[in-house]
Amino acid sequence: MTEATLSDYEKRLLDDFQKEFPLHPRPFAVIAERLGVDEDTVLDLLCELQERGLISRVGAVVEPHRVGYSTLAAMRVPQEMLEAVGRFVASHPEVNHCYEREHGLNLWFVVAASSRRKVAEVLADIEYRTGLPVLDLPLEEAFRLDLGFPLTWE
């Protein structure tokens, strides 16, 4: 993994606008003013960061459970099945995060769909097709919801 090299403007852009994007007809001009550069510079930087894959997008982040329903699920998958089960789980369009983790419960994923019933159907399908139990760990209370975190630079 090579460390991403970033200019000071890029760092400030990434740091300052994770939480709050200006709802203004010319949002990039507002950002530019705050950074003390011009609008074109900001747009060029963002395009470049996006091309390098350092930002995934500039857009809306939807609140879970406000539109539809989601849960975190975990499975204990025998090592020799992990590749196939991981691919199968990730292939569901309702699965939007899927991680292999170093733990007995080694496959973790988030299932999101239009309703609680639809989420339950996806979990049941995964249990049925893999023959493995799925732990269902729905959110019960949110103390912090993906608000980004301060990036530190060396």
Binding site: Q18, E20, F21, L54, S56, V62, E63, G148
Partner: peptide, 9 residues
Amino acid sequence: AVRRIALVP
């Protein structure tokens, strides 16, 4: 309903 509009690194 929308948590934030943001630059998502």
